[in-house]
């Protein structure tokens, strides 16, 4: 594995992913705010949650890119379109399994079954995160596809 190439490409791809999600949120396509959701695990202070969550999201994206890189190395294929396909699979996982597990795993997220409580007040994402806007799946697919494509395009196989 090419460690220096992973550090650079993983960082760039994560920054692009974060910027793409923030842009689609700012343009009103979705209310899904991953840094906020992640940060709210750590604190109930919403301003700090955004900051902590952003840092956690960047580290998380960086770390997650190792899995992509391992796939590239194993298959000896690091073309942009292959990265894009992995990104789409990644997005599908996030939107289905991830959103299904999130209300159970997140300490501050309400569940449809029990409703909000004093501690759990965050709106759950629902299937495909549609609760956060009907265009949320598109935004998640596009940003993760960009993540995979950029990572693959920048990564140099060992």
């Amino acid at each position: 594995m090419n460690w220096s190439s992973w550090i650079l490409s993983g960082f760039v791809a994560t920054v692009v992913l974060s910027a793409a999600l923030a842009t689609s949120q700012g343009l009103g396509f979705t209310r899904m705010n991953l840094p906020y959701l992640i940060g709210a695990v750590l604190t109930h202070d919403r301003d700090r949650a955004r900051l902590y969550g952003f840092m956690a999201h960047v580290i998380n994206g960086w770390a997650f890119s190792i899995i992509y890189v391992l796939i590239f190395e194993t298959t000896r294929n690091a073309s942009w379109w292959f990265g894009l396909v992995i990104g789409l699979v990644h997005a599908l996982f996030v939107l289905t399994i991830g959103t299904m597990l999130l209300p159970t795993l997140h300490p501050r997220m309400a569940t449809e079954r029990h409703g909000p409580t004093a501690k759990r007040q965050l709106e759950p994402p629902g299937f495909m995160a549609l609760n956060y806007g009907y265009q949320t799946p598109i935004s998640v697919f596009l940003s993760h596809a960009a993540f995979g494509a950029i990572l693959a395009a920048l990564y140099k196989l060992h």
Partner: peptide, 14 residues
């Protein structure tokens, strides 16, 4: 009303 993030659903007992 929430625009930019997942909504907060307040606990009625609070």
């Amino acid at each position: 009303y929430t625009e930019n993030a997942p909504a907060i659903l307040p606990d009625i007992s609070q």
